[in-house]
Simulated assay, not measured.
Amino acid sequence: MKNNPTITKKIIAGKFKGKTLKLPSKETTRSSKAIVLESFFNTLQFDIIDAVLVEVFSGSGSIGLEALSRGAKKIIFMEKDRDAIRTLRENIAQTDPSACEVIEGDSFSNIVHVKKRLAASGESAFIYVDPPFAYREGMEEIYDKTIEMIASLPLEMATLIIIEHMSTLELPESIGHFNRLKSKRFGKTSLTYYA
Results as ranks from 00 to 15, higher is better:
Val54Leu: 09
Val54Glu: 00
Val54Pro: 02
Glu55Ser: 03
Glu55Asn: 09
Val56Asn: 04
Val56Trp: 00
Val56Ala: 14
Phe57Ala: 06
Ser58Trp: 01
Ser58His: 06
Ser58Ala: 15
Ser60Phe: 11
Ser60Gly: 14
Gly61Ile: 08
Gly61Leu: 03
Ser62Leu: 02
Ser62Arg: 05
Gly64Pro: 01
Leu65His: 07
Glu66Asn: 10
Glu66Asp: 04
Ala67Gln: 05
Leu68Asp: 10
Leu68Trp: 13
Ser69Lys: 13
Ser69Ala: 11
Ser69Gln: 05
Arg70Tyr: 10
Arg70Ile: 11
Arg70Ala: 06
Gly71Thr: 05
Gly71Ala: 06
Gly71Val: 03
Ala72Tyr: 07
Lys73His: 14
Ile75Ser: 08
Ile75Leu: 09
Ile76Ala: 02
Ile76Glu: 01
Phe77Pro: 00
Met78Leu: 14
Glu79Tyr: 04
Asp81Arg: 12
Arg82Cys: 07
Arg82Leu: 14
Arg82Trp: 10
Arg82Thr: 14
Arg82Met: 11
Arg86Gln: 14
Thr87Pro: 06
Leu88Phe: 03
Arg89His: 13
Glu90Val: 09
Glu90Cys: 04
Asn91Gly: 08
Ile92Pro: 00
Ile92Asp: 02
Ala93Pro: 03
Asp96Arg: 05
Pro97Asp: 02
Ser98His: 01
Ser98Glu: 14
Ser98Gly: 02
Ala99Thr: 12
Ala99Pro: 07
Cys100Asp: 00
Cys100Ser: 05
Val102Phe: 00
Glu104Met: 02
